[in-house]
Write a protein that binds this DNA or RNA. Structure first.
Length: 474
RNA sequence: GCUCCCUUCGUCUAGCGGUAAGGACGCGGCCCUCUCAAGGCUGAAACACGAGUUCGAUUCUCGUAGGGAGCGCCA
């Protein structure tokens, strides 16, 4: 039988990394089994749902490349259907109208808590036949689902194993508000039945909702899907992930310079593994992933490992592909990519030196525009009188280079050093400071290559001038 | 408070009754080296605790402790 999974976020914010991982698991499970993956937007809470959030979720899914076969399906478009099912339950006496005012329920809840009891609806309206006319006219009732009061509800969770809870722990939940709008636990069940979802993958914060939902499935005479409750993702400090942990929204990771492949690879390894393998292509994830192998423990987010994976992908993915992602960051920091080396060339040189694309853009400005001043300590150390001769020599040598490629440039620097009878550092370091204004940059041949011939010669001249002025001043 | 869930290096994890408890990130050291990286080699680092079951428990059972989730006319 084909597997049908769904990811069902509520549009009350951006696409959270925890949600992204759940979506990834749903996606992988469907793709692996040749099934379908559905995206459903749970927007029944009209107060908190926003159009921007819907867009943010769609953007996040798109950036990650998690494409769905059906959807997005909006619950707000299905109110008529929920109302229909509610009427059926009412007619079958599996649900009933409840006229209890909110304040009565609040008081009840407080009393129960005080007595050390679990707060539950006491069932006052369950079999109430004495609704006075004036009450039924002034109070619009909610609809409650008649939960079984005996027996247990249990299911074999695909990741947790057998979970069981007594019906006496449950109460009659509201399935429709006074205005007729449906509530979460009810819409999920109706939708999952209507959409023939066969495997419900969701965060383990929903474990407690599952028994209630199972009872609704039964009342509706529907077959149960398989449930898989995946552990949550914690912040780096082990506490629940929240804004103060930095990036929680998926798009924030793009802004921070991560590749979608890296984030996906990082997320799939949270709670799941395949032997000692750390790096997985999407094809491998689809091939190896199985929801039953997901473990039960909540996992703390580790930026170091994400960084490592990100660098891995920056180096291993085709440079042109990485360059396309880098482009966004270059634009973002206001660099004109026409005024320097091709981005793909930049990527081949810089990817092993930085952890993120954001960092790459930041350390690459000198290849696209002139730097303002020499970094004081670098200049003090390397642009001294003794550096004048090597710089002049290398300038002459470079001026003669026709094929401005790393091999020829490397040769030029080496030959210059040999000719002067000094080691590489005596030539390379002053040259590096001349080229970049700092003492840190890629290998000198690569640095020259990226800076380009004309700009390199200009900058050497500038450094020579600096040395001369400084010499005169001393 | 009540119910449900979780517990192997700092972190992500392997383990599925007998292992020197493996890998990865990070951290330390060495090597390489024109700087910074990257790379290679290497080191330190874990079975929460207590009872059982068993010839033998990280692995099975039960407690304890710690952590998480839920208990809405939010999802």
């Amino acid at each position: 039988m084909s597997v049908r999974t769904r990811f069902a976020p509520s549009p009350t914010g951006f696409l959270h990394v925890g949600g992204a991982r759940t979506a990834l698991f749903c996606y992988l499970q469907a793709r692996a089994k040749g099934g379908q993956f559905i995206l459903r937007i749970e927007d029944t809470d009209l107060e908190r749902s926003t159009e921007e959030s819907v867009q943010a979720i769609l953007n996040g899914m798109h950036w990650l490349g998690l494409d769905y076969d059906e959807g997005p399906i909006f619950q707000t478009h299905r109110f008529a259907r929920y109302a229909e099912v509610t009427r059926t339950l009412l007619a079958e006496n599996k649900a009933y109208h409840c006229y209890c005012p909110k304040d009565r329920l609040e008081i009840l809840r407080e009393q129960q808590m005080q007595q050390g009891l679990k707060p539950r609806y006491d069932g006052l309206c369950r079999d109430r036949k004495d609704i006075p006319q004036d009450i039924s006219r002034s109070i619009k009732p909610v609809v409650r689902f008649r939960n079984p009061d005996e027996g247990d509800v249990s299911w074999d969770d695909a990741v947790r194993g057998l979970i069981s809870i007594s019906n006496t722990e449950l109460d009659d939940l509201v399935i429709a508000r006074p205005d007729g709008s449906p509530t979460y636990n009810f819409t999920v069940v109706v939708d999952d039945i209507d959409m023939a979802v066969s495997l419900v993958i969701r965060g383990d914060d929903h474990i407690n909702n599952t028994p209630r939902q199972i009872n609704i499935y039964r009342a509706l005479g529907a077959e149960l899907p398989r449930f898989a409750h995946v552990p949550m993702i914690l912040g780096a400090d082990g506490a629940r992930l929240s804004k103060r942990h930095g990036a929680v929204g998926v798009m924030q990771y793009r802004d921070d310079g991560y590749l979608p492949q890296a984030l996906l690879n990082y997320l799939v390894r949270l709670g799941w593994s395949h032997g000692d393998q750390e790096v997985f292509s999407m094809a491998e994830m689809i091939e190896y992933f199985d929801i039953v192998d997901v473990n039960r423990k909540a996992a703390a987010f580790d930026y170091n490992k994400l960084d490592w994976l990100n660098q891995h992908y920056m180096r291993e993915l085709p440079a042109s592909e990485v360059a396309a992602h880098l482009r966004w960051h270059m634009d973002h920091v206001g660099l004109n990519v026409q005024s320097g080396p091709a981005l793909a060339d930049l990527v081949t040189v810089q990817s092993e030196r930085v952890k993120t694309l954001k960092e790459m853009a930041a350390v690459s400005t000198v290849y696209y525009q002139d730097y303002d001043d020499f970094e004081p300590t670098a200049a003090k150390k390397h642009l001294r009188l003794v550096a004048a001769e090597p710089l002049q020599a290398i300038r002459a040598s470079l001026a003669a280079v026709v094929d401005w490629q790393p091999e020829a440039l490397d040769q030029a620097v080496h030959q210059t050093a040999e000719g002067l009878g000094v080691n590489m550092g005596k030539v390379a370091q002053p040259l590096r400071v001349a080229l970049t204004g700092t003492s840190v940059s890629p290998a000198i041949d690569k640095t020259l290559w990226l800076v380009g011939k004309d700009r390199s010669l200009e900058r050497i001249d500038r450094a020579l001038q600096f040395i001369e002025q400084r010499g005169a001043a001393e």
